[in-house]
């Protein structure tokens, strides 16, 4: 083939770019330890959510020293629990599943962002360094009320979080069980 010398140079430059981009991503995965949402969780059918040990009662749970798990159920057009309260400076794993259609669970202004697909569970482990308040949105179109689907994430100072937990334990009986069936009624998108 008759390829001009400059063009050969550009092919070499292009390969440098491509390999450089792949190398950066690899560094992010191996060097920085960024993990992708993947197939690590067992599938969970939407009609098994209510009986599921984790998602039957969506909640924040302490599972170890400075380790928390958050079980989130998304449905048209809300997240449970809402708001979600977690402590700063702790390892927090969000497990998210969907009761109906495809949603997302996206903590706005952070890289904590996943698709939520019915039948699957998304898992993300993150650590918030500072207390703060974040909006959670669904960024995948999920029906007529899609734009109303939002939640709140409150990251508390670790000590304040302790105190809140103790208060909550005191009036655990007062927690109202959320009835998702009434909440999803009126969604015209589902067959």
């Amino acid at each position: 083939m008759n390829i001009h010398a400059y063009e050969r140079l550009w092919v070499a430059g292009s390969m440098v770019l491509i390999v450089g981009f792949i190398a950066t991503i690899t560094y992010g995965a191996v060097g920085l330890g960024i993990t992708m949402v993947d197939d690590g969780e067992e599938p969970l059918a939407p009609d098994e959510i209510d009986e599921d040990e984790r998602f039957g009662e969506p909640r924040v749970e302490e599972v170890g020293d400075d380790e928390y798990e958050v079980y989130v159920v998304s449905a048209t057009f809300f997240f449970q629990p809402d708001p979600i309260e977690i402590p700063a400076e702790s390892e927090v794993t969000f497990y998210v599943t969907s009761r109906d259609v495809i949603h997302s669970f996206t903590v706005v202004g952070t890289n904590t962002n996943t698709m939520v697909i019915p039948g699957e569970v998304s898992a993300m482990t993150v650590e918030f360094d500072e207390p703060g308040e974040y909006g959670i949105v669904c960024n995948e179109y999920c029906g007529a009320g899609h734009h109303d689907m939002e939640g709140e994430l409150i990251v508390l100072d670790p000590e304040e979080f302790e105190e809140r937990q103790e208060e909550n334990d005191d009036d655990v009986d007062a927690i109202e069980v959320f009835d998702h069936r009434t909440a999803t009624a009126g969604n015209g998108e589902l067959p």
């Binding site: 770019l17 792949i22 993947d38 698709m115």
Partner: peptide, 25 residues
């Protein structure tokens, strides 16, 4: 960002996609 698909598959596809830059460059 889909659950249920292994990270390895995603990585393989990422390298294919990056090489797809070549024809455009």
């Amino acid at each position: 960002l889909d659950p249920g698909i292994a990270e390895g598959f995603k990585f393989i596809v990422m390298t294919n996609t990056m090489f797809l830059l070549l024809p455009s460059l």
